[in-house]
Design a protein around this nucleic acid. Structure first.
Lengths: 204, 204
DNA sequence: TCTTTTCTGTAGTGATCGTTACAGATAGAG
DNA sequence: CTCTATCTGTAACGATCACTACAGAAAAGA
């Protein structure tokens, strides 16, 4: 069985990984097939034979990102307390966003604006992915309320929206050249607000 | 004197205003000359005669944005107290970002990521503009410390970075379809953190 | 009126876009 | 070996990109 014709002359996983970095750096519209094939080290027909089309490569790239760097957030939210979870989310992503080995910022966050994937299906898919992060954060906080980790009066929705908004902002700052320390300072400040945010303190 | 030859057949200011909305919505790379001329209601030669080139139109569009919607932040920072200034910055921009009459989010913030203006000069110009907002916020907070409005121990740099990060995040959320109420809730949460942020309260 | 100057519409420039037709190469199945 | 299936390189497809040559139109200055 399997693989009847001429075998593929390149490693599909390696090529996809390279394609991901191109999309990550330039966005969907900003990355041309020529950019992709050059970085992937293959010809256009090979790309189309292996992946289908540009949007297909993009979809697989996003899926790969979610399974690698994108999994940071999901993993961070598994921390034992809500505070540790949110802090880990901010810090781990701040580190990843400024990793010199990869493009800066979050691939999914940064493909929302500007880039504006004109393909409606892909655009909707990306919006959904970003919404999923908010949902995950909200769910984690709600669990903390259930567990008594956070007070019952805590406005879980607002807290989640604020910290996700900060997370989005970190991507923009990273893409603008902010250093790891810059983003770390933002994370510090955001976590300094934690007690006030979650109702452990009340304003004067 | 003046205007010897055939007079221009359209209102340059109106045309520029329309060009601004196209760039605002699609970014620099995402907006084609065909998009621009269609929306502006003029032909390509008229555009080039009146503005020079695509980047020239973009530069003028950004300048116009700064003079109109972009001035919101500058005006907000003139509020009598630092707290009022930051709150006005967040709320006024949250309103503007979701104004149904204009594209969503901030033109300057959203042209950073994804879009990635490939022209280096324009890119540097935009980075500088975003940095200028951070500087303005920091200066406003420093003034507040001088005036005794904020305590001397307040970490002005960190507070400024956090609130600008939140402001960036609002643009991303707005572009993703967040409503005015959504953004308003984020502003509420961010301002609930104000006392903790500025050292009026200390964590337990 | 006639020249000069500027704008406008038509039409087209070469370059690049995503994508593919085609033929040769290379494998398994018979 | 032959047939079939798949991949690869060359070379090109039509569409669109930013941009402009050119000629005619419309104004001021003479």
């Amino acid at each position: 069985m399997a693989t009847r014709g001429r075998p593929r002359g390149f490693d599909r996983d390696v090529a996809l990984r390279r394609a991901m970095t191109v999309f990550w750096e330039h966005g969907f519209e900003g990355a041309s097939i020529a950019d992709l094939t050059t970085t992937m080290g293959i010809s256009a027909p090979s790309l189309y034979a292996a992946f289908g089309s540009k949007v297909d490569v993009y979809r697989e790239s996003v899926a790969l990102y979610r399974a690698t760097d994108g999994a940071l957030t999901r993993r961070a939210l598994e921390a034992p307390t809500a505070r540790q979870a949110i802090e880990a989310m901010l810090r781990d992503n701040a580190d990843a966003y400024t990793d010199p080995g990869t493009p800066r910022g979050c691939m999914i966050v940064l493909s929302g604006p500007g880039d504006t994937v004109r393909d409606d299906a892909v655009h909707a898919f990306l919006v959904e992915l970003r919404a999923a992060t908010l949902d995950a954060v909200r769910a984690r906080l709600a669990r903390a309320v259930d567990e008594g980790d956070l007070p019952a009066g805590c406005d879980v929705g607002s807290v989640a929206e604020l910290y996700v908004t900060v997370l989005y902002g970190l991507s923009v700052k990273a893409r603008d050249g902010a250093t790891r320390d810059d983003l770390s300072r933002v994370a510090d400040a955001a976590m300094a607000a934690w007690p006030a945010m979650t109702g452990l303190l009340t304003a004067t």
